[in-house]
Nucleic acid binder design. Structure first.
Lengths: 341, 341
DNA sequence: CCTTTTCATTTACGCGCGTAAAAAATATGT
DNA sequence: ACATATTTTTTACGCGCGTAAATGAAAAGG
């Protein structure tokens, strides 16, 4: 199979003019079916693909979509990045994936990179509390950005996420109905703003039921949430355990660490008569199904969220001239009853 | 801060000529310190960054490095991708991350994309058995590629991975020394070639100790390894369990599913006197530390592997003219004794 | 102070493609 | 078969930058 180095040559071997071929690559349906067939035929016989750099240089906007997640080795973000990538491809875009790696500096570098890529749009899950707010602001002003997972009020053209207070109150309701009211366990300095809403959701749900909220804030920095949950739980258990026999963790990863600590201490986790403690989480982390016992949690609908994220991006790309108002979409969680609570 | 749209204008405001500025951006040290200072000063006052597409169009090779992993929501690959990304940046490259998503078609698409990106090199963890071999071959011929995790003999300029048979024999030795000899549990049709070497390592280690290897192959396709491990274990346990009280899983993810099934069946896992069964894995998956009980496994040295991967890439980039022979580097695993076996 | 070396500037071309306008060819309807 | 609408070709320009060669200016050395 012969190598062809530019569109000029390819046009020649396919017996057409370069502008026609160019038109084909921008949209195969924009040329006559017979012409299209000739090009596709030539594509079989010759090895050619247009130079993406030359293409993108002349387009004001490229067909690229940036996807930015705060931490790639967190399976939650790995999974949502995977689904977003698939959706982008299906929509005819070329996704470009970045991880901030938990570092605000890296997040800013990614912004600079993305700006220079002139993407059609960016799907951004910001670091949250640690993000350089002004950097995010100026980025969102320049590039059509849809925020997900972690909201920063007023930034970006849309936010799609979970209704965190609904998550928590749903779980609190279930836990209270089926046993003792839960103690809420969270990090003292959580890296992301969802945690705050979950705490608030917990407090108001408890108060609405005439119960006194009880919150335990455990120490620790960074993204090793399981370690933090484990250490926090060991600490709590060493001090006589939580007040009551039920714990609601701010997220599944903390809960996974908590469960591990319970096992270490020989506590039987679950809702059966002989059990010592109930532990619940939130997020339906990919691994929650396999903890021992399997973790009762609130499920985020990954597919629905990422579908909506892309929908929002497409919407903002279309109406780019007459910008509509910023929209916020919150998905409700579903209770996933497993054996831990 | 004024916006500047091209290098011409930027050269003007910094009082230099465009070629000089161009030289600076290619290597800040290639211009006189005083000139460098003037440019960096102008960079503070004006908002300008060169158009990456125009830059890359004229370079034969870009400063990009492609990273391809088979499945991004697998925390193992998430973690190794994260570390590789960091190393690339440190080496002055701009990493571009792709996931094959478990699909050979997607893998080929990624190859096409990468070819058109003219990267300096590519770090590739192929899908393995399902990969289109000829596609990988032609890709490796065209782009300097370093394979990792999963080897395909003869392809790429180097392979860096784990010494899988060492992993297994190390674990077999430990298990035999500390209790009954293990039954080996693996998928009937594992997606990746490491599994085969682990099976072989198991067999030869057992035979070397005068023991009869016993292999259980469980059914299942795809990348939901925990589910497959769980179902396989449930099946085995329903049929009276493995021959003996010790199970060595081909990898940690299967083991995690296996542990979950044991819990479901009320079996006590561990090496203490009262335990029913011992379960071990391989890989030291990020979550193995938090299973109940924590999983005894063989640790891969992520940092060492990814450092070596990048080193190999840099080597092949330098000597691009006089290609040395393909090198293979295998890292030994370390036994991580936790409580499951 | 003058020569040599180093660095910067000028000039000019090319990369591979988008894209616009006008002319030519082809398809469509009657 | 003709007029009209659609598609394709021709021609021509521009994008932002790399890069090479020749010239000019500044730094270094004696």
């Amino acid at each position: 199979m012969e190598k062809i180095k530019n569109m000029e040559q390819f046009a020649e071997v396919s017996g057409l003019s370069r502008p026609t071929v160019s038109k084909f690559f921008n949209d195969p349906d924009s040329v006559r079916p017979s012409t299209r067939a000739r090009i596709e035929d030539a594509l079989e016989r010759f090895d050619y693909q247009p130079n993406i750099y030359a293409i993108n240089q002349n387009r004001r906007l490229t067909k690229t979509v940036g996807i930015v997640v705060p931490y790639l080795s967190d399976p939650f973000f790995g999974e949502i990045a995977r689904v977003l990538e698939l959706n982008c491809i299906a929509a005819g875009f070329s996704p470009s994936l970045f991880s901030s790696n938990g570092s605000p500096e890296r997040e800013k570098e990614v912004f600079a990179l993305l700006k220079s890529m002139k993407p059609s749009g960016v799907l951004l899950a910001p670091l949250g509390r640690f993000s350089d707010q002004s950097a995010i602001k100026s980025f969102c002003d320049e590039v059509p950005t849809v925020l997900f997972d972690s909201n920063i009020e007023g930034f970006g053209r849309a936010f799609i996420g979970s209704d965190n207070s609904q998550f928590t109150s749903l779980m609190v309701e279930y836990l209270v109905r089926s046993g003792e009211p839960p103690v809420f366990v969270e990090m003292k300095t959580p890296p992301n703003p969802n945690a705050r809403r979950r705490r608030q959701g917990y407090s108001s749900a408890m108060e609405a039921m005439g119960l006194a909220p009880e919150i335990v804030q455990i120490a620790g920095e960074g993204w090793a949430l399981e370690d933090i949950g484990f250490a926090g739980a060991m600490d709590m258990l060493a001090r006589g355990g939580p007040a009551g026999n039920t714990v609601l963790c701010s997220n599944d990863r903390l809960a996974i660490g908590f469960l591990s600590a319970c096992f270490e201490k020989g506590l039987k986790v679950g809702r059966e008569p002989g059990a010592d403690i109930r532990v619940a989480g939130q997020d339906d982390h990919p691994f929650s199904k396999f903890t021992c016992p399997p973790l009762t949690t609130i499920a985020q609908d990954y597919e629905a969220i990422s579908a909506k994220v892309l929908e929002a991006l497409l919407a903002t790309i279309d109406e780019d001239h007459q910008q509509g108002p910023r929209t916020t979409t919150l998905f409700e969680g579903k209770l996933v009853m497993r054996k831990s609570a």
